[in-house]
Amino acid sequence: MDMIHAEQLVYEYDKRDEEGNVIGTNRAIDGVNIDVPQGSFVAVLGHNGSGKSTLAKHMNAILVPTGGTMWVDGRDTKDPEELWNVRQTAGMVFQNPDNQIIGTVVEEDVGFGPENLGVPTDEIWKRVEESLRSVGMIEYRKASPNKLSGGQKQRVAIAGVIAMEPKCIVLDEPTAMLDPNGRREVIRAVEKLRKEKKVTVILITHYMEEVIAADQVFVMDEGHIVMHGTPREIFSRVDELKSYRMDVPQVTMLAEELRKRGLDVPRGILRREELVEALCRLR
């Protein structure tokens, strides 16, 4: 079954003038259909204002559609009775780690979620330990979050979500504020979660390198899904991607440049080993 399934999803909100009078409506999501199979890794790309964060917020009912339907693990997010079930199914991680950490000690912060769910104390500690271990932060369990680096804080935030044992985790630009090392740590932690815990992962990002391992990539523009395919398919369409203000990984760009200059390099090269291999074959 699909973990996330949307049919003709629409989200409109009122535009207001300075006095608060409604002067029109904005359609942030405009007829989106999307299927995310359970256990898969899906990436969503799109420029600032393309609607990707709005879409993400529909996946745990922070926003509910004004048209069409969004099902999370078979539950209609519009149904008020299902609200808490939806939120427990899909956990969210946001851009700024400082806005998501409330505890003064790492392990307390991670325990906050399950405690609110009414999980028994023994079980909370078990989950805290397990989730900190799965993001590689167990040795910081007694540390104060404000002493951690951005990447470490973000991994604590992810552990906090994992401790609630969601079936699905939605990450909205989790690496935007991090340095290269922090970005790598976070992406590795996410990939590990997916493999070991079979959690469905939805990653929203501006970094093309982070989506290489995804099963499918969606590109959004003006509230629509304009491209959909595997990373290799998506990154073979360099000019089209650029027209949506996106980019391709630098290695893909180099391969494209070499092809333009007359070398017979295949399209859609994603990793550096692939490029080196292709060039060795041409020699």
């Binding site: 420029h47 600032n48 393309s50 851009q95 504020m177 501006h206 650029k242 203000r245 996106m246 980019d247």
Partner: peptide, 10 residues
């Protein structure tokens, strides 16, 4: 360029 899309960054 933190937080900007690739085109915005360029």
């Amino acid at each position: 360029t933190a937080g900007l899309d690739p085109k915005g960054r360029d």
